[in-house]
Design a protein around this nucleic acid. Sequence first.
DNA 1: CGGGTTTGACCAGCGC
DNA 2: GCGCTGGTCAAACCCG
Length: 570
Amino acid sequence: MAKGGGLTLDPDSTSFFITNKPTVLNSYTEPNHTSRFKNDIMDISTDPIRNSGDEDVPSPASANWKPVIVNEMDFFPTDRNCSKENHRVNVKKESAQDVVIRSLGLNTGLNLTTNTSSEKSNEDDRTNNTSNKKSFNELIALQAELDRMSVENERLKVLLNQVKDNYNSLQIHFATLMQHQQTRKAKTGIVDEVINGDKSNGGLTRQFMDLHRVEKDEPSHTSSEGGLRDCSRSPMKDKVELEYKKQKICTSSSEIIQLDLDKSDSRNGTTTTGREDSPDQAIPGSALNKAPRFTTSRDADHQHSETLSMIRKARVSVRARSDGTTINDGCQWRKYGQKMAKGNPCPRAYYRCTMGASCPVRKQVQRCAEDRSILITTYEGNHNHPLPPAAMATASYTSAAASMLLSGSMPSTDALMNSNILARTALSSSPSFATLSASAPFPTVTLDLTQPHNASQFQRAVQGQFNMFSSSLPHFMSAPQVFGQALQNQSKYVGLHSSQGIELPPFASSNQIHTPSLSDAIGSATAAITADPNFTAALVAAITSIIGNVHSNHSGNSTQPTTRNNNDNN
DNA sequence: CGGGTTTGACCAGCGC
DNA sequence: GCGCTGGTCAAACCCG
């Protein structure tokens, strides 16, 4: 490009390159022309323009001819097709841009003239200044354009986030409406005792029922008055929709706490019925049994049974990559059936927990039709027996489902708040990580642990909530122990225990194992999470289990031993 | 022999 | 009412 060296301007990087050799300038730019000095500056002797006898350009042989030595520039090397006039030297002309720049008082600060000849310095400076000012204008324009694009980019980002939020909200709402339609057709004679029961506790729930009715489109709902609800409405749907309304309306923690407290009134627990498969025992250790009692026992019984039955049907589905027939969740299962499910060539296996005499917990295992390496495990119910620490994660799935799907049904304490926050944090941080489905037949929360992105995001969510939890964790379940147990579980998967220098029995109690520091645990958990999705599943459930424990401990109204409480003794 | 798995049958819910 | 589908049961079978 530059034959004799000099100064060039890289149009891409907008930086100047100074070469050693001065260049004899034999070209110039028309005042209003957008082209720049050409890089293919020729030697005067070989310049066809000069040889053309153009009278505007003095010949070297003439007395007036003075070679103009300036730095070679290449502002726009692609502009190689400009007319011959562009190559002429007319340093006495001043471009309009120069005038503008000078009138604006702009000082490029660029004095890149390498020519030391005093008699040519003025012309050199003028030529350099002209080109530099033009380039400076270009820089300013580019910078302005860059700034404008940045602003536009930010605006689009905000717009995208808004669209995503709206999409998620609509998705939840759509699922709710679908559930509503199905339940409305299915149920015809349900007497609304929930509403009646809420009359005794300030009517805050009523407000949401009314709000719900106001927002409903169906005339059958808008026409109802005086606390009577459409008989076709199922409590399940109401719970789901209430949660949806809550997420839309509540923007502060205090609001959420208040609402949760209100809901706890309508659902406080009673003693168990003793039926082995009763919902009460299906949710052992659930905070449902420990809520403050504000309503009559009849209402409480009814609402309690409804809610428990509802939660009994809530499911947690975990998608994780596994080569085995099932994921190692620490529980003992007995397969009692296998069916070919519609739409999936892989059979669905049915398992029942055998760790308890009449444990109601069951799970379904089926491989993903699209990706056979993904194992979809769906848990249902809660254990009614003590569980080893390694199985604590599994024991918590249904509680997590209740928290995420029916958080409005949970009696509220600050711990419950944490539970909701955790669920919402996971959901909000990565909508693709956990998805809620209120569609028939059962409300299901799906944890997708097949993507490392989701796992890491949830890990961050858990880590973010960790400090909040650690301050309220029960004394018998310190935060490091949580991760310790999780790490213990993980160690069985990937052999991390060897790195810890300890050997862990399969169901070793927490106080027998090495308790890592918080930072170590988090760090190890982070590494483990990214290494094994199964561990992420365990960690998810472990955290939610602790949340449940915290709540149970805070409520202090336990009427029966629970699975988690029993585990807490470890 | 006990515990777990397999597999065909049975039942209930739902849609047409 | 009928067929489809999901879920469960239980006898037969397998395995350590």
